[in-house]
Design a protein around this nucleic acid. Structure first.
Lengths: 335, 335
DNA sequence: TTGAAAGCGTTACCAG
DNA sequence: CTGGTAACGCTTTCAA
C-alpha cells in the first residue's frame, strides 16, 4: 500500500478572497449572509467558494465571535445502546435541533472516573450545556464550572453537593404503585431486583418497595432483595437463586428494563411450575405480547428529554436563577 | 425572575501566567504536560490553574495545532432511538474511545435534506471523520470533501456516486436464508414487508426474497409485497391488509426490526385463526420468549461498528488508498 | 459598500 | 529551562 501524499489543506477565507479579488472581510460577509455586499460581488465570491471547495470553519468562528457559543451540548448517559438512554438522547436531539445544536454523546457505564474524564473533555470543548446522568456519588467537582456559568441539567438522578437543575421521575411512587398492584393480587412475598445501590434512582425504588410492603402490613424481607444487578444475566441468575429459597417469593419487582428482561428469561427457562408474577420498572418492546402478561411502571422518557432541554435553554439564556427540580409522574400499565 | 449579571469569563492561559508570574508559554507547557519546566514552577502553575478554575480550551488549541485534528467523529444514523442505530453508535464509541475521540451523533430520519445539512454542519466543525448511514440516493455532493481528505465510511448502505469505504452486510443472502427457511417449512405464499425502496438495503432484501422464491420454483407474487413501511403501525396495517386478501399469505418476511414488531402485533391482535409464520431481519429483545417462536436473520451490529471504526482510523492515518467494501455475513437464528 | 488591522486562546518556533 | 513573537481562521471594529 503506497502512502499517498497528504491532500492540500482546505481553502481559507483569505484564499477565497484573493482568488475573488476582494477582501477577507467581504468573503466573511458573503459566507455569513450579512448585508452590505453588492449582488455582483456576492455572486462572484460564491462562485469562488464553490470552485475552491471552501468550507466554513466553525471552530475559528466560535473562537473569535463574542459570547463563545459552540452550539454543542454534551450528553453523558449510562449507556447509549440502552433503550432508555437512546430515547432520551433522541428527545434531546429533537428538542434542540431547531436551534442548531449538535449533541456530543457518550456512555458512562456507571464509572465515576469516566464521568469526570468526559466532563473535563466536554468543558474543554466548551459545550454550551451539559446533560448528565451521573455515575458519581457527589458532583461537587463541578461546582466551580457551574458558578462560572456552565449550564448543567441532571437527568434521571438528582445531583449531590451541587445546586443545579434536574429532571427526575417519581421513582418511589412508581415502585409503590407496582408493588401495590402485586399486593392487590394477593402476593405477600414479593422480591426486589435492583441496580447498584450507589445509584440514587435505584435506592429510591428500593425504598418504594419497602414503603408499599410496610403500608400493607407485610414485612419487607431482606432475603428477598437482590441489588447491584447490572445485566440481563445477573438478574436472571438472581431470580433463579431466589426461587430456590426454602420459602421463595411468589412475585418480583424488577427495578429496571434490563432486569425485567432477565426476570422473564428466568421465568421462562429456570422457574419451577408456579412461576412468579413479574412487575417491572420501564416498559420494554414486545412486553405486551408476552405471556404471562407483565405489568409495568412506565415513565415518559421523551418528556424527560424535553424538560431537560427546556431547563438547559433557560439556563443558557439567563444565568443565576435558583435550581429547579422537575419530577415527572409515572404510569402503571396493568396487563 | 431577576436576570443576574453574566458570570465573569473563564480564565485564560494568559491570566494564569500573569497570576503565577510566569510566561504564557510556560503555562502551556504545564497544561499540556510537556517537559522543560522545573518542578517548583510546575507546582505553582498547577496551583494557580486550580485557584482560577482554568480550563483548557480545545477549540483554540486545535486551531493552532498543526494537523488540525479535532478528535471528533460525526455519526449520522437513521434514528438514534432505534435499537440498531443505538448499538452501532455504542460500538463506534467503544472502538474509538481509547484514542480520545468524541462522537457527534444525529438522526437523519431518511430525510435527504437533513443529511446534507448535517454533513455541512459536521464539516464546518471539522470532524476528523464521518460515519454515514445515508438517506440520500447519491452522495456526489461529498466528492470534493473526500478528495480534500475527509475520511468517510458508509455503514449499512453502499455509497452512490462516491468512492469511499463502506461496511454493509449480506442483505440479499440473509433474506434468502430467511425465506428459504420458510420454504423449507412448506410455505409457498410468502409476503414481504419492506422499508422505503429508496434505501439500497431495502431493495437488496427485496431482491433476496425474490431470488429465494425463484430458486425454489415458486412465483414471487407482487401482490404480496408491501414496501415503504416506516413504523410498527404501518407494518401491522400492511400485514392486516394482506391477510384479508382472497388468497392470503401463509408466512411473512419482515425486512427490518420495526416491521417485525408490527407483524407480531398484527398476528397477535388482527390475524385470523391460522396465523402466518413470521421471519424477520434483525433480532429484537424478548423475541426469543415470544410464542409462536419467530426465526430471525441476525447481523452483528457491533462488528459493523468495529469495522467502520477500523476503516476510519486507517483513512485518518494514511490517505489515498482505494476504497474498501467490507461485507459482513448474517446468521439465521432458527426458533 | 468595502477593507485594514486587531484580537479570540492557544501552540510553534526560535532566541535567550 | 524559560519567554517573546508570530500565527491558526475567523469576526469585530472602525476608518475609508
Amino acid at each position: 500500500m503506497t502512502s499517498h501524499p497528504p491532500p492540500p489543506p482546505r481553502a481559507t477565507m483569505r484564499e477565497v478572497a484573493s482568488a475573488a479579488g476582494v477582501s477577507l472581510k467581504t468573503v466573511s460577509r458573503v459566507v455569513n449572509g450579512e448585508p452590505g455586499v453588492r449582488e455582483v460581488v456576492r455572486r462572484e465570491v460564491e462562485a469562488v467558494v464553490e470552485e475552491l471547495g471552501y468550507r466554513h470553519h466553525r471552530g475559528a468562528s466560535d473562537l473569535r465571535r463574542s459570547g463563545q457559543r459552540t452550539r454543542a451540548i454534551g450528553v453523558l448517559v449510562q449507556d447509549i445502546a440502552n433503550d432508555y438512554s437512546a430515547r432520551l438522547l433522541r428527545s434531546l436531539e429533537d428538542a434542540t435541533r431547531e436551534r442548531g445544536f449538535v449533541l456530543l454523546a457518550a456512555s458512562l457505564d456507571e464509572d465515576a472516573a469516566r464521568e469526570r474524564q468526559l466532563v473535563t473533555e466536554m468543558i474543554a470543548r466548551r459545550v454550551d450545556g451539559l446533560v448528565l446522568m451521573a455515575a458519581t456519588d457527589r458532583q461537587d467537582y463541578l461546582a466551580a464550572d457551574v458558578r462560572a456559568g456552565l449550564p448543567v441539567v441532571f437527568v434521571d438522578r438528582v445531583p449531590h453537593g451541587l445546586d443545579v437543575d434536574c429532571v427526575t421521575i417519581d421513582n418511589a411512587g412508581g415502585t409503590r404503585a407496582g408493588v401495590e398492584h402485586l399486593l392487590g393480587r394477593g402476593h405477600r412475598r414479593i422480591a426486589f431486583l435492583g441496580d447498584l445501590p450507589a445509584i440514587p434512582t435505584a435506592r429510591e425504588r428500593l425504598a418504594g418497595w419497602r414503603q408499599a410492603l410496610v403500608a400493607a402490613g407485610a414485612t419487607p424481607d431482606p432475603a428477598l432483595v437482590r441489588d447491584g444487578l447490572r445485566t440481563v444475566d445477573a438478574a436472571r441468575d438472581a431470580l433463579g437463586d431466589l426461587l430456590r429459597l426454602p420459602d421463595p417469593p411468589t412475585a418480583v419487582f424488577a427495578a429496571r428494563n434490563v432486569l425485567t428482561v432477565g426476570c422473564l428469561r428466568a421465568v421462562r427457562w429456570d422457574a419451577p411450575a408456579p412461576a412468579p408474577e413479574v412487575v417491572g420498572f420501564d416498559d420494554v418492546e414486545l412486553l405486551d405480547l408476552l405471556e404471562p402478561r407483565t405489568t409495568v411502571v412506565r415513565q415518559d422518557v421523551e418528556a424527560v428529554g424535553r424538560a431537560a432541554a427546556d431547563l438547559l435553554e433557560r439556563r443558557m439564556a439567563a444565568h443565576g436563577w435558583p435550581a429547579r427540580h422537575v419530577v415527572l409522574p409515572t404510569e402503571l400499565v396493568v396487563r
